[in-house]
Amino acid sequence: MKGTVYLNDKTGIVVIGATGREASQVIKESETLYPGIIKAGITPGKGGSSELPVPVFDTLKEAVSDPKVGKLLNTALIYVPPVSVLDAVMECLDNGIKVLYIITEHVPIRDSEVIYQEKVRRGAIIVGGTSLGCFVPSVGRIGAIGGKDPTVAFRDGGIVVISKSGGLTVTTAEMFKRRGWGTYMALAIGGDIISNTTYADVLQEIKGDPRVKGVVMLGEPGGSYEEQVAGLIMSGGFDKPVAAFISGRFQERMPEGVAFGHAGAIVERGMGKATDKIARLEAAGKKYPVKVAFYYHDLVKTIESLGVPRDFEDSTTEHVKPLYSTF
C-alpha cells in the first residue's frame, strides 16, 4: 500500500453533501488535480444529477450498491451543515464506510461525543470535525487542503504535519517546502473538544512507517491532546523526531475566559494551557527527540536541529520584498 491508513492508493472517496457550495468546488478541483479519487457524491433529492463530474446519488446505500462505483467506496468526506453531521456519520458507518473525514465546523459537542463512541464501537477511523482533510503528495488529497494549486505548499518528502488548524497545516508545509523539506503526509485533525483523531492516534498509526522522517505538530490551548503526545513518547510509543509549536501563550496574559479560535481553544479552569502543554513536551524532550519551538517560524530550525534530513535544496532568499507597496 502506498500512503497511510488516512489516504492511500486504494482510497475511493464519496462526498456527503456533495452539491453544496464548498463541496462541489472541492469535487471539481479534485477531479482536475487527482482525477478519479472521488468516486461519487450524495445529496438527498439530487440523485442522478449531472451537475458534478462524479455520479450523484440520493442515498449512500444506492451508491454502495451501484455496480460501477459501489465497491470502490471506502472513504467519506462529510460537508453537511453542523446539525446534520451525526446523521451523515451514521449513514456512512451503517453502509460500511470505515474512514470518514468531517469537514464541517461547529458540530455540537454532544453529537461529536455520540460520533466518537460509535467510531470506537465500530473500529472506524474518523478525522474531525473541523478537519480540512489530508494530503499525501505521493498519492493525492482528501478535501480542500492545499487549494487549487497544492504544489505551492506540497512536495513529496519525509515530514508529517499534524495540526488542529487546517490553515496552518498548509502554511507550515509551505514554510518547510521553501526550506528544503517535503511532506509525506499533512493531516488537519481539527480543533474540536471531542476529537475523533488526535495527534497521539496519528503517531500510533504511522510509527512503523519507514517513510516518516520527522513530525511537525501544531498545537493549541484547550484539552489535553498535546499532553497525550508527551505521554505516548515517554512510554516509548513513538521514537522519531517531533518538532512542536503550541500557540496561545498570549491568552494566558488576557482576562480569563476570552474565547478565541476554535471551539477547543478555550482556556478554562486552568486546564490545557499552552504553557502546560509546552512543559510536558519539553519534559519528554529530555530523553526523546522532541523539541518545542518558541516562535512559529522557529519550527524550521527545530526540525533541522533534530537531525531530520532535507529532501531537496533550500530555496529561500535573504530579504523578502513586498509584492506591492504604496509608500
Binding site: K164, G167, T171, E220, F260, G261, Y296
Partner: peptide, 16 residues
C-alpha cells in the same frame, strides 16, 4: 486575521 490557527499565531506574535 484568518483561520483559527493562523489568527492565533499572528495575534501571539504581534503581542510578543
Amino acid at each position: 486575521t484568518f483561520g483559527g490557527g493562523g489568527s492565533t499565531v499572528t495575534a501571539e506574535t504581534a503581542i510578543e
